[in-house]
Simulated assay, not measured.
Amino acid sequence: MHKDLIKFVRKEFNSEEFIPLHIPTFKGKEKEFLAECIDSTFVSSVGAYVNLFEDNLSAITKTKKTIAVVNGTSALQVGLRLVGVKKDDEVITQALTFVATANAIAYNNANPIFLDVDRDTMGLSPKAVKNFLEEFGELREDGCYNKKTGRRISACMPMHTFGFPVHLDELLKVCQDWSIPIVEDAAESLGSEYKGKPTGGFGEVGGFSFNGNKIVTCGGGGAIVTNNIDLGNRGKFLTTTAKQAHPYEYVHNELGYNFRMPNLNAALACAQLEQLNGFIDNKRELATRYKTFFDSKGINFRTESEDTKANYWLMCLELNNKNERDLLLRETNNSGVMTRPIWQLMFRLPMYQHCQIDSQENAKFLEERIVNIPSSVR
């Protein structure tokens, strides 16, 4: 099967050279917009393209306010602060995720609680959250508390793994019942939809990434989105060094962040956003061909769940066991076709080994079996 897969991938990407997992595609107005930005001399944190990017992303995500920031991690970090996460609080999230999800919590001096995922979405399981809160949760006048630790549970942060949306209706209901705001880690899911609505706008705030390997990139960049104008304005204030408006004085009245997206990056992002629908159509066509190929081999190619539309940012296989996974990884990478395992579970990392977890049954199952395969726009 491995030789057939390598042959199939090389044909799809029309290359006998090294084939990466995901590379950016620049076929639009990137050079034109960058030249305009350079000619304007506004290449740093202020400029027309920052404003245009924020407006365009709000339109795409159907949210009322977007704040352009330097990367997806900073978007999540500030997003958590916006919903009230404070030092020594706890945030419910998933262990099966990229490390930025957990780091954004730690940067707020808060503590992750790692709960299990659903096998179909590979994202945070509403059932796992419900079970945890029924065992450990305690509602008080000022929010939900963890009876085991005595700490306040001040947010829940699901991550839409590889662009596959989590079961949002169920998760929203559980968190509403327990007075816990949701911060969506939508770093990987730009263009994905849940019941016809774009991801990122379901929680109080959402965070996106525009890193070089994302479906839309500006080299480095991120964004906070929200339907709460007050939170959005505060997010803009905090990410621009918490500087109060004044014609010439420098007045900063609280601890802020220099997390501003440069106009130069925003110009690139604007050109990329114009191509988003085409990128998604291209990737969904590739996913259809991958599924046909792997169905013929009796291998589970992971597809979107009911009531969702996935952007198929990174496409993946589910092998039967870890030995099969490791063999595929070895054979493909040795042949110049890049594949990668899913992330190591967060509670295995030294800085998060102290964190509270549940059984992690599904997360451990997926950790041993999931492999990402080349997913670039062709």
Rank of each mutant, 00 (worst) to 15 (best):
Y248P: 00
R369N: 14
N103D: 13
D39W: 11
A128F: 03
L329H: 04
E36L: 13
D281N: 13
P247S: 02
G235N: 00
E368P: 14
P112H: 02
L133R: 04
V91N: 02
L329I: 12
I6T: 13
P24W: 01
R119H: 11
D88R: 09
T308Q: 06
M157N: 00
A110K: 02
N265D: 10
I38N: 07
N103C: 08
P350V: 10
D185K: 02
N300C: 13
G232D: 06
E138H: 06
Q94V: 12
E361C: 06
A363F: 04
Y352L: 09
P198H: 13
N334H: 10
C270Q: 00
K148C: 05
M1G: 14
D281F: 14
Y257N: 02
Y49N: 06
R284G: 08
L124P: 01
L329A: 06
I342V: 09
Y248Q: 10
A35H: 10
G336W: 14
W313C: 03
L264Q: 02
Q272L: 09
T63P: 06
C270E: 00
N213V: 11
L82E: 04
L76C: 06
Y107D: 09
S296M: 08
T63C: 05
S359P: 01
E16M: 08
L317V: 07
D281V: 14
T339K: 03
F162R: 03
I105F: 05
Q244C: 14
P374W: 14
L286R: 13
S375E: 07
I182C: 04
L319A: 12
V99G: 04
S15K: 05
M315W: 08
K62S: 08
N253E: 11
K127F: 15
F347N: 09
D169Q: 11
I105T: 05
V129S: 10
N265F: 12
R140Q: 14
S189P: 01
T241F: 12
K214P: 03
